[in-house]
Amino acid sequence: MAQKIDIDQVRKVANLSRLDLSSEQLTEFAGQLSSILEYVEKMNELDTDGVEPLAHCLEVSNCFREDIAKESLGTDKTLSNAPEQDGQFFIVPKILDESNAS
């Protein structure tokens, strides 16, 4: 039986998720995700036309804070967990394609 999601789609999703997966893992996930998705499609048994989607179970809105400054962490604490830093900045391998930014 054809799988719900094939290996190419799994690879695409892995790429979107920034997960460098081995081909064995891709294959394994293709199978598992397919059966989970098949199960999930059980939802299609329900007629949900006209049903409002519920993203928040709280029926509240308008939560604001006032525009008052609070203390920041400061450079040292900000960088304290960084895998690589130079005392001022986080360091990453050179970004060549700036246009990737949104």
Partner: peptide, 22 residues
């Protein structure tokens, strides 16, 4: 505004890198 959109870090031009971070 005086502060960032979702936190109380002050907004100023320039300054020590990574100092206005929470």
């Amino acid at each position: 505004t005086k502060t960032k959109m979702f936190c109380g870090c002050a907004l100023e031009f320039a300054g020590e890198p990574n100092s206005r971070v929470c």
